[in-house]
């Protein structure tokens, strides 16, 4: 019974993926892609990875979908001609080869599967955390997570750098045309406080149950975007020092804690014994904040000249 459900999920994911590739129009492709992300979210639950499911739905489908929708709306260039038949056949053959190779590897995977789960379980008590995934992200492999926050920041710099010189310090363009009715404002006034609470809870609970900085940050970013779209918050001025300080809080708070590891523990990114959990929560809070701001600004896009609206 549950295998049938899994098979149905797989089928849906494949159909959505095919539609995201084959649909003729940009908007339909993005819609199919967002559906694909939501289906993958269910797949992740079936794979016993609730943390990943939350991230997939919030970031992989939600925020990514928003960015793609924005690009589709603003990219009015006619689609280039379809590739020739011979080339498409070649691509089909390559795709089939990829499938065959990967399917063979999947069927031949070693038994029993090698796993680091016992290692994580052995060292989890030392971190004082209940959620093994948070422990991997913030303790065992902290360097990856630290650099990931830098990657996000760097993507934002790259996006900003695309603006013409005179608008570098301006505001991002309007995402939605102003609605006629007050429906959006009504919704935002009611949902944003609840959403902020949910986002904060996801960050806070992430130490022990599924959740964490990335999931919580994504929810907070969505709430900020909703408030901006509804006109409850002004579009941010990107040159503001305070805004930039928020962007930097996560990566540099993390770096600073890492350096202090040399002083109070015996290695870079080692947490001082006794207060690990407090320091970890502090780092997570800074990261959550920065991720929320960075994600929201990435969705808003590069600054534009004010007079173009």
């Amino acid at each position: 019974m549950s295998l049938a459900f899994d098979a149905l999920l797989c089928l849906l994911a494949l159909l959505a993926a095919l539609r995201a590739v084959a649909a003729g129009e940009g908007f339909s492709r993005v819609a199919a892609f967002m559906a694909y992300g939501l289906i993958l979210g269910l797949v992740w639950v079936r794979l016993a990875a609730v943390d990943v499911a939350l991230t997939e739905v919030a970031v992989g489908s939600g925020v990514t979908g928003l960015v793609l929708l924005r690009a589709v709306a603003r990219d009015d260039a006619p689609a280039p001609l379809a590739a020739g038949l011979a080339y498409r056949l070649l691509a089909g053959v390559v795709a089939l080869l990829v499938f065959a190779g990967l399917a063979a590897v999947v069927l031949l995977l070693p038994e029993p599967a090698p796993s680091l789960a016992p290692e994580v379980a052995r060292h989890l008590p030392a971190t004082d955390l209940g959620n093994p995934i948070t422990a991997v992200l913030i303790v065992f492999r902290a360097l990856d997570t630290l650099l990931e926050t830098v990657v996000l920041l760097l993507a934002l710099i790259g996006v900003w750098a695309l603006s013409p010189d005179r608008t570098w310090a301006g505001r991002p363009a309007v995402l939605l045309p102003a609605p006629w009715s007050g429906a959006l404002e009504f919704l935002a006034r009611l949902v944003v406080p609840v959403g902020v609470l949910v986002g904060l809870y996801m960050f806070w609970a992430g130490a022990d149950v599924p959740g964490g900085a990335f999931q919580g940050g994504a929810v907070l970013a969505a709430m900020a975007l909703m408030a901006i779209a509804a006109g409850l918050l002004p579009r941010p001025v990107l040159a503001r020092r305070r805004l930039r300080a928020l962007l930097l809080a996560g990566p540099f708070g993390f770096l600073l804690v890492g350096v202090l590891g040399w002083v109070f523990a015996d290695a870079f990114l080692a947490y001082p014994p006794g207060v690990e959990k407090a320091v970890i929560i502090l780092v997570e809070a800074a990261i959550t904040l920065s991720i929320a701001v960075t994600l929201a600004l990435l969705v808003l896009g590069p600054p534009v000249a004010e007079e173009t609206e």
């Binding site: 680091l116 290692e119 994580v120 060292h123 303790v139 065992f140 492999r141 902290a142 360097l143 990856d144 590891g261 523990a265 015996d266 290695a267 870079f268 990114l269 080692a270 947490y271």
Partner: peptide, 13 residues
Amino acid sequence: TAFIGGWRPPLGV
């Protein structure tokens, strides 16, 4: 060599 956070591979980096 250096081990980030003092965690050795395979768990650490």
